[in-house]
Design a protein around this nucleic acid. Structure first.
Lengths: 207, 207
DNA sequence: CCGCCAGATTGATTTCGGTCAAGGTTCGCC
DNA sequence: GGCGAACCTTGACCGAAATCAATCTGGCGG
């Protein structure tokens, strides 16, 4: 019933306010969910990793755009087919409910960050979050490591995208990264590479 | 199976990070969902109106506190009873899924506001949102009015709570209200009363 | 290998909203 | 009706992050 599809980095899969015609499961890669204002400001409202569900079942329109951050493989379904199938399979609806509730919890925790945290707190929280989220998804170059938060990882985001996730500007993000490096809290071996040198300091900064 | 309960204004129903022992349906009144930092900053992450569902089914702990904003009546269920009952009644789970998806959409729209909107935009968006949400719930003093956004209504929030909802300080909220009044966009007949005099101007400000 | 250019950093300056500090209002309660 | 406290408004000032403006870097195509 589903069709495999590849989406290359930067390519959109779903457009904000469009009719909700498809839903999908992420097989590989990372995608962002965004909303934009008329004048072009963007806010990333969610990030989808492998095994995550994307799209808006049981609704006419999609509230967010979905764009691939890395090359990705997804399994897409026509929304109306999916809706019908789901209603006939309570186990599937239950799984979807559990995932949606978990996503709502994560989204609400992010509202705290957007509304009440300072730039240093936002960056520290972000790095710790990435360290945990990326560890579970084979996105990490950490040979022979047991599970748990990753010490070193590659961000699936550009600086601008980090800014769009945290409600900051690219300059502020850059300055905060530089400061963390200068303070010896992290190392930044490449544009998108992060190595956490002092997790305790990051946790203290995250508040 | 459920028990009726009254919760008076300011009284908590569920505590953040506590074991998720109960879920509930709002019958009457308005409640806030909040998260707090260790140092006491608060962010309102959701607002529950009559017919809304509150609590965290299928999860060990609650990610947010729930506190009544007005005197409220709710119908509470033990969470484990509810979980069991829901799994046996797909129609109920479906309804809950639809509501949760809608709440997630609303929450994501609010992230845009928190991360990217200016104080005037936040206040204007808030007032338009309240005008719509309160119209559907008998919270409005508008005799003989047909449905649609309310022109006049009473906020269920203090100034501090508006600040906690928008990620602002109480002083900024107060100044923005004063400015809207001075510009003739709204009238403020009482501490919590709002009358929209120029909806077009508000919509333009909301962006 | 070199030049190009998108993306990132760095610096100077501005501004919006926060902080600190008084007052002022309203409303419940005696 | 008057008292008191909680809530709200207003003003002066400050500072964090945005904005504006170069410069730098590093990855890629020629």
């Amino acid at each position: 019933m589903g069709r495999r599809r590849t989406v290359s980095a930067g390519e959109p899969l779903i457009w904000e306010d469009d009719d909700s015609l498809l839903v999908a499961n992420v097989i590989e890669g990372v995608l962002k969910l965004t909303t934009s204002t008329a004048d072009g400001r963007e806010q990333i409202v969610g990030v989808a990793y492998p095994s995550d569900f994307i799209g808006r079942p049981f609704g006419q329109t999609s509230a967010a755009s979905v764009v691939a951050l890395t090359d990705a493989r997804v399994c897409v379904f026509a929304r109306n087919d999916f809706d019908r199938f789901a209603r006939e399979h309570p186990e599937l609806e239950h799984k979807l409910l559990e995932r949606t509730l978990a996503e709502l919890d994560r989204t609400r925790a992010w509202m705290m960050l957007l509304g009440r945290k300072s730039a240093p707190e936002k960056i520290a929280t972000f790095l710790l979050d990435m360290s945990e989220r990326l560890a579970d998804n084979g996105c990490v170059h950490q040979p022979g490591a047991q599970s748990g938060p990753a010490r070193q990882f590659t961000l699936p985001f550009s600086r601008q995208q980090v800014a769009d996730l945290l409600g900051l500007t690219i300059e502020t993000v850059s300055r905060q990264f530089t400061k963390l490096k200068a303070d010896g809290v992290v190392a930044l071996p490449g544009r998108r590479d992060v190595e956490i040198l002092n997790r305790g300091a990051l946790m203290a900064l995250a508040g």
